[in-house]
Design a protein around this nucleic acid. Structure first.
Lengths: 332, 332
DNA sequence: ATGAAAGCGCTAACAC
DNA sequence: GTGTTAGCGCTTTCAT
C-alpha cells in the first residue's frame, strides 16, 4: 500500500503539501503541485480514506433502514436517495430489518459508533421517545411513514388527503356503497388511509358502515380474503377502495371469481401505483406517490442536517397523484 | 465523545485492558473486567469503529454493485447477500450503476481506497482484463451473470440448461413450431438462454428458423412488439419461449389482443419467476432461480476470500426450477 | 508557499 | 494479568 509519505518522499515535499495538493491545490505553487501530481500518478497512489475519516470524524456514508427490501415502494424511494447521495459523494449503507425491531436497534449502533453520518428511516416503529432522543443527537430523516407531531424531519405524502381523493373519485362516479380494505391498522399510514376514506364519505354525508371496512395486511391474499367477505354481504358494495395495489389486485381476483366484471359490476381503486398496476387487467386506478422525489428530498434534508443547518420545517408533505385507469370505469 | 481512555481512567486501568475486555474478555481477571464493564456502562461508551478500522485495516463492509435497483431479480439476490452479511457482522454498501459503466468504475475506487473489504458484482460488463486484474488484488464475486472461462468466482444458474429445460417442456407438450423472444444478445445471459433454446430444438432435430427468433431487451414492451412480429408470420408459432417474464407478459398481451387464447392457441413460457408471474392471468409457467441462495452463497464466497482462503472452484452453478403453471397448458 | 509535528481513537507487540 | 508504547495514514495548526 503506497501512502502519502511515499508520495511526499518521491516529490521531495512534506506530507502536508501532498495533502494540500489533494484538498486545496490553489494554495500550492504550480511547480510543486506538478511534482506532487506526477509522484501520485507514478506511484498510483490512492488515499486511505479510513485515515482521513478518523481524522475528520466523518464517513461520507449514510444508513438507510428499510423494513423490507423487496417492497417496490421503498425501492423507488431508495433510488432517489441513492441518486442524491452519490451526487454528493455520499455512499449508502443498506440495512434491512425484515420488520424486526430488534434489528432496527442494532442498526442504530452504526450511528452511535460514528460509522455513518446520518440515517434515513422508512418506518417509525421505534418508541417515539427514543426516536426523538436520537434525532437530537444525530442527523435523522423519516420517510414514507408519518407520525403526527413527531419532531423528526419527515418526508411523506398526505395519506389522508390522498385516499380522500381516491374515494371522492369513486363518489364522483356515482358510487354510494363504497367499501374499504384497509392496511394493518397498527400502522400509521394505514390508519391515515382509512381516515381519508372516512372523511370522503362524511363530506358527502354518507355513513361509514362497519361491515364495509375490512382490515387487511397489505398482502394480495388479504385483499382477496377481505373481498370475499365483502362479496358475501347482503348489500354488496358497488366500489371498493383498497389501501394498496396488491390488495386491490387480490380483491379484483376475488370479484372476478365471483363472476363480477370490473369495472362494470364493481369499481376498485388501489394505492401506490406499483409497476404491475398498469399491466394487470383491468389496469388499476390508483394513487401514485412521487417516490424518487421523496428519496431525493429525504437525502437533501439529511445532508442539510449533517452540514449543520437546523431547518424549522420538520414535516415535508409531497403531492400524490390520482392515476385514472380502467378499474373503476373512468369519467363517465 | 467519550473514548477508551476515559473508560480506562474511570476504571483505573490502561486502555489496553479496556480493549482486551472488549475483544478477549477471557484474558482479563473477572474483577477487573467488571470494573471496566461498569465504567463502560456508566459513561455510555461507544467504541469508535473508525479508529479500529484504521488500525486493523478492515471495514467490515462489502460493496454490492447493481445495474438497476428496481429489478426484483437482483433484489432477491441482494436479500440473500444482506442476510448472510449481517449474520457475519458485515454491512452492505449499495452501489447503483443505472447501467452506466462509468459509475461502475467509480465504485471500484471504494475497493482500492480500502473503504470496503470486498465487492459483489451483478454484471460482468467491465473489460475482462480489468476484472481479472481486480480479482487478483481484491476479494470479488460475480453473481447473476456468467462469463465462460472467467477466472472470477461466480455464482449463477446454468442459463443454457435452464432454458433448454423450458423449451423441452414445450416440446413434450407436442409443440413443434416454437419461437423465442430473446434478451439483448449483447448480454451473456441472454445469449445463453438463446443457446438453450437452440439446443432443445436440435436435440429433437428441429430447425431453428431465423424468423422464429426475435431479439427483445427484457422489457415488457419489447416482448409485446416482438410478439406482434411473430403473430404476423405466415406460419405462426404454436409456442413461444421468452427470455424473461416481463417479455412473456408483453407477449401474452399482444397475443390476447390478436384474439388468441392462452394457452389453447399459444403456449408461453417465461423466465425468472417474478412475483407477478403467479398473479398475472394466465399464471406464467417459468423458470425460477434460487435468488436468496445465490445471494447467500455469493456472500459466503466473498467472506472466504476476505478471510484469505483461496478456493479452487471458481464457478458455482445452482439449480433452477421449472415452475409449471397455466400459460402453456400443463401436462396433458 | 512549505514544513514540522501533534494527534484523531484504537490495537497489539512487548515488557513486566 | 496488566501496562507501556508505537504506530495505522491522514489533516491541520503553527512556525518559518
Amino acid at each position: 500500500m503506497v501512502k502519502m509519505s511515499d508520495v511526499a518522499l518521491k516529490a521531495n515535499v512534506s506530507t502536508a503539501t501532498v495533502s494540500r495538493v489533494l484538498h486545496s491545490p490553489e494554495t500550492v505553487k504550480e511547480q510543486t503541485r506538478q511534482k506532487v501530481l506526477n509522484a501520485i500518478k507514478e506511484l498510483n497512489y490512492q488515499p486511505n480514506i479510513l485515515a482521513r475519516q478518523l481524522r475528520k470524524n466523518e464517513t461520507k456514508t449514510i444508513l438507510v433502514v428499510v423494513p423490507n427490501i423487496m417492497n417496490t415502494v421503498f425501492l423507488g424511494i431508495i433510488e432517489g436517495i441513492e441518486a442524491e447521495a452519490s451526487k454528493n459523494q455520499y455512499k449508502v449503507l443498506l440495512g434491512n430489518t425484515n420488520n424486526d425491531v430488534k434489528k432496527e436497534y442494532g442498526l442504530i449502533d452504526l450511528l452511535k459508533q460514528k460509522q455513518t453520518d446520518g440515517m434515513i428511516l422508512f418506518s417509525a416503529r421505534l418508541e417515539e421517545d427514543i426516536l426523538h432522543e436520537l434525532s437530537e443527537q444525530y442527523p435523522i430523516v423519516l420517510t414514507a411513514d408519518f407520525i403526527d407531531g413527531l419532531k423528526v424531519p419527515t418526508v411523506s405524502i398526505d395519506n389522508i388527503s390522498s385516499s380522500r381523493k381516491a374515494v371522492l373519485h369513486l363518489i364522483s362516479l356515482g358510487h354510494t356503497r363504497i367499501a374499504h380494505i384497509s392496511g394493518p391498522l397498527s400502522n400509521s399510514s394505514a390508519r391515515d388511509r382509512f381516515k381519508g376514506y372516512e372523511q370522503a364519505l362524511y363530506q358527502h354525508s354518507m355513513e361509514v358502515g362497519s361491515m364495509l371496512v375490512q382490515e387487511g395486511d397489505y398482502s394480495l391474499e388479504s385483499g382477496y380474503n377481505q373481498m370475499r367477505k365483502l362479496l358475501a354481504l347482503e348489500k354488496m358494495p358497488t366500489a371498493v377502495f383498497a389501501a394498496n395495489d396488491e390488495m386491490a389486485i387480490g380483491a379484483i381476483k376475488a370479484a372476478k371469481e365471483h363472476g363480477l366484471n370490473i369495472p362494470q359490476d364493481l369499481a376498485i381503486v388501489g394505492f401506490d401505483n406499483i409497476h404491475f398496476s398498469s399491466i394487470f387487467e383491468p389496469r388499476l386506478t390508483t394513487i401514485a406517490q412521487p417516490l424518487f422525489k421523496m428519496g431525493q428530498l429525504s437525502m437533501k434534508l439529511l445532508l442539510a442536517q449533517i452540514n449543520g443547518s437546523v431547518s424549522e420545517k420538520t414535516q415535508y408533505i409531497l403531492e400524490s397523484e390520482l392515476i385514472i385507469r380502467d378499474s373503476c370505469g373512468g369519467k363517465e
